[in-house]
Amino acid sequence: MELIATQLPGLLLVRVGQDRIDAAGAIQFKDRMRELIAPAQGRVMLDMSQVGFLDSSGLGAVVGVMKLLGPDRKLELAALTANVEKVLRLTRMDSVFVIHPAAPDDLRDAG
């Protein structure tokens, strides 16, 4: 599971560097995210632009990551592909996350 983390002032930006979060990779995704967010303070944003496929196990893992953040922080998702956006909409989880149309390029290049 390729996850590229960049710590910016007040924001941990994590780019998912592979094209799917599915049943075969969900546990690994959640475990790796747990390591990345443990030392992080402030906001956490996932750049989902590379992720063309998210199944219910993958969605469960993304929800699980948000729950790891605790009650006071929401997980932010950026740059959803059409397929991923549809899964969130059909399961009505689109209102649970803060969703951004894009991960800002200047932030992505900053690390």
């Binding site: 219910s56 893992a61 929800v63 059909l90 399961t91």
Partner: peptide, 23 residues
């Protein structure tokens, strides 16, 4: 059917058959 969504207890599963039935 989707589980009720409580703010402090979000479901991490139960999405699969809902998606299948939707599509």
């Amino acid at each position: 059917q989707l589980a009720p969504r409580l703010p402090d207890d979000l479901p991490e599963g139960g999405f699969g058959w809902h998606l299948i039935r939707c599509l």
